[in-house]
């Protein structure tokens, strides 16, 4: 395929859950849209494997962090819409702060010069 794509980044283990939860923070949507949203928002750096997206969605549902309902999509088809539960919101918050701390720590170590700047 000739489509030009930027170098892809492999998703780190466990990050997909957070990405899904974050995506749902903007409102309920279906699996396909979640994948597209992550891809677009990360400027195509992150490609969500469909093969792991759906198991992840069901896992999150089982954990009670997200819930699902069947609704009509904008194309008029029945689709499974996921939305965040209060628990999921809580979990996202704690994961978010963990990621912030982690990212900051990584940044501090990888770019020591930035600190002076």
């Amino acid at each position: 395929m000739s489509r030009k794509s930027p170098p892809r980044v492999e998703l780190l283990q466990g990050t997909l859950d957070v990405l899904i939860l974050r995506t749902l923070l903007t409102g309920p949507t279906h699996g396909h849209a979640i994948a597209k949203h992550i891809q677009r928002t990360s400027e195509d750096l992150l490609q969500v494997e469909t093969g792991s997206l759906y198991p992840a969605l069901h896992r999150l549902e089982a954990k009670g962090w997200i819930a699902a309902s069947w609704e009509l999509s904008d194309k008029g088809k029945r689709a499974k819409y996921y939305h965040l539960t209060p628990q999921g919101r809580k979990h996202l918050a704690s994961e978010h702060s963990k990621w912030d701390a982690f990212a900051r720590a990584m940044g501090l170590i990888l770019n020591p010069g930035d600190q002076e700047a």
């Binding site: 279906h30 396909h32 194309k75 088809k77 029945r78 689709a79």
Partner: peptide, 13 residues
Amino acid sequence: ELREELEFHLDAE
């Protein structure tokens, strides 16, 4: 439901 969900994905794609 799972089959329907995946079919929807394929259609959208």
